[in-house]
Design a protein around this nucleic acid. Structure first.
Lengths: 218, 218
DNA sequence: ATTAATTTTTTGGTTAACCAAAAATAATAA
DNA sequence: TTATTATTTTTGGTTAACCAAAAAATTAAT
């Protein structure tokens, strides 16, 4: 098995199992990896033989500890590169993912070490996702979606997951800019729309928009 | 044909034909690419069909203009990355080649543009090799091989043509580093070995090594 | 519980990139 | 020029990663 293939499978299993080694099934994997389920069956069998996953026939697959370690390392590489592309080379957050998808496979520990060093050993990438350290430890963040914040709670806008011009214009109009401190005033029961206070003004935000705004709880 | 395979073949043909589209044969290619000649025969046929080379049976292969353009682009990517690794991340010139060998295959024009920009659009890499510009143009220099310098003449070390770790380590040991000013003291008649003065010390260099050291005449 | 729908696995087949060994071709030496 | 050596090509075969379609197993619905 090619190392790039292994890495892509492990990474995808890691993401689908949300870090906590939940069992993932072949269809999920096939969808994410853009192959047919039969291909996945073949692959997970091989990964099982390599002791990187535990694959139980007709049931599902989960990472072993060594598979998990490897996955964490790939995620680290990906996010270090994303941070580097954004912070050092001036790429936009919407551009970095695709390039990092290729760069993550360059395996040279010293390279990642140097990049991390130059960036001041960041714990979060430009999307707010945590960067595992060299040992695979992930710093817990208090970044959540605005839609998850409870009434009366305070938070600060840290980013967005939708980079469309229309959405960004909408935010600008309501002065919902990065770094803005906000307080949740009310959450409408019937449509989950939110009224929040920002710069002393009331702003109403649809639940759809709230799904796309990343905030840090305070 | 996979793009990485294509790139490796074109790059190797380019290097073996010394930039001037000399015909290269299958054995040379097989040696450099670490495959057997039969594999090369297969590959050059396909590259011919792609109009990237002109392959004449039992005779040899040379780049077409579009193959040459592509090769130049790969060389550019490789050397930009080498320069970046050395200048921005503090890698030694003996380490950069190997990593650049992988990085050169990441094809994202904007990425190379940004790197070049950050480096101030360099024309030479850390080994003294010229970096083709976006159009494939190579800046001419008064760089020659150390073996071509005459007795009593002065010059400055600008690069090497052998990037093996052993050779680079050898140079470092003798303080024959990039930028060092040297003077040719004597050239031995019978084996063409050279005694030169560098940092006020006498250093003896074999003709083989002198073939691999690029200097700028002063 | 039986049918229907979904998911998974098996089976057979493809393509790219490689190799080993044999055959053909070209180059060199006697 | 013939023999010897070297190179190139052909032929047959392998492996990894994929797919399509059929078969088997699981899950959901009536």
């Amino acid at each position: 098995m090619q190392s790039e293939t292994i890495e892509n499978y492990l990474k995808t299993i890691y993401h689908l199992s949300a870090g906590n080694s939940t069992i993932v099934n072949n269809k999920q994997l096939a969808d994410k990896l853009k192959v047919i389920p039969a291909t996945v069956t073949e692959a997970v069998k091989k990964l099982h033989d390599l002791k990187l996953v535990i694959y139980e026939k007709s049931y599902g697959t989960r990472l072993t500890s060594s598979g998990s370690k490897m996955a964490l390392n790939i995620v680290r590489r990906h996010r270090i590169w994303e941070t580097y592309l954004a912070n050092e080379l001036g790429f936009g957050w919407d551009e970095v993912h695709e390039i990092a998808e290729e760069l993550e496979h360059i395996k040279n520990d010293k390279l990642i070490k140097k990049l991390s060093e130059k960036l001041g050993h960041p714990n979060f990438d430009p999307h707010g996702d945590p960067i595992p350290d060299e040992k695979g430890k992930i710093q817990k963040s208090n970044f959540i979606k605005l839609s998850e914040v409870k009434v009366k709670h305070h938070c600060k806008i840290m980013g967005v997951t939708d980079h469309s011009t229309t959405f960004l214009k909408y935010l600008e109009k309501h002065e919902l800019i990065i770094g803005a401190s906000i307080t949740i005033k009310t959450i409408e029961d019937f449509d989950n729309s939110i009224v929040l206070v920002c710069q002393k003004k009331d702003v109403s935000v649809s639940s759809k928009a709230a799904e796309c705004i990343i905030v840090e709880t305070i």
